[in-house]
Amino acid sequence: MKSYKAQRRLSLVFRYLLLTLLAVVWLVPIVWIVLASFSYNDTGFVSTFWPEQFTIQNYIGIFTSSQFPFLYWLRNTFVVAVISMVLSTFVTISVAYALSRLRFRFRKPFLQIALVLGMFPGFMSMIALYYILKSFNMLNLGGLILVYVGGAGLGFYIAKGFFDTIPRSMDEAAIIDGATRWQVFIHIGLPMSRPMIVYTALMAFIGPWIDFIFSGIILSSSGNPKTYTIAYGLYNMLHSTKGSSTTYFTQFIAGCVVIAIPITILFVVMQKFYVNGITAGADKG
């Protein structure tokens, strides 16, 4: 009995050690990124783990730079994120609900077409998107929102999976009691899918903060850095200038850390919803 206990203790110690080791491996690069953002460096490359010289000048620099209007980027991204969050969530939830709870003629074809569309790589469509938006004179933040919202209709899988798990008997009972389907949607469907709405909304909110490709294609032609979003602005900081970009490198890292913090917190908070969302569809296997 004693040896069994000792064995278990040993196993626990071993597991703790393993876990700690893994955690260290996982976090080292992240810690390094944060450290690098505090390092003084003008060569465009950080070669040491521990900065040779600490400074907070990078953070001061990024917030006061006139060429790289970081605060405008933050504001733009926030506006885009909020608007596209509201609209995308509405679109995604509507589509998911309709496909899951309502029966209509084009339901199945729609599911199949959506599946097919999702398999084309998106890059080629960017050229077309650019010209579509250009013909509406929408090569700006508004156009960017349109693109995000326009794509939201195809992101229904997870939400649909979630709706599929809610027993349908409730809807039927309500219909028999004389409720319209709209009332069922508003008073039963939406309240029950609150975690799903939170998940969809947060994902839509995070999107604009991390997308540097679409935003680059759409926003770059304005040439006005005040209209950029944060991801493209930061990316552009590294790639637009020969030579001098090396001097901005640590500022770039500082800017990255600034936006990574809120996104990380949001994500950590919503990890539960994320898991629920992903597994809901798969639960019935």
């Binding site: 996982w26 976090l27 990124i33 991390i210 996104i263 950590v268 990890q271």
Partner: peptide, 17 residues
């Protein structure tokens, strides 16, 4: 959460670095 942090950091930051 420790592990999720890595996933949460935007990829254009974590991968470029």
């Amino acid at each position: 959460t420790i592990f999720v942090i890595v996933y949460a950091v935007p990829q254009f930051v974590s991968l470029l670095m």
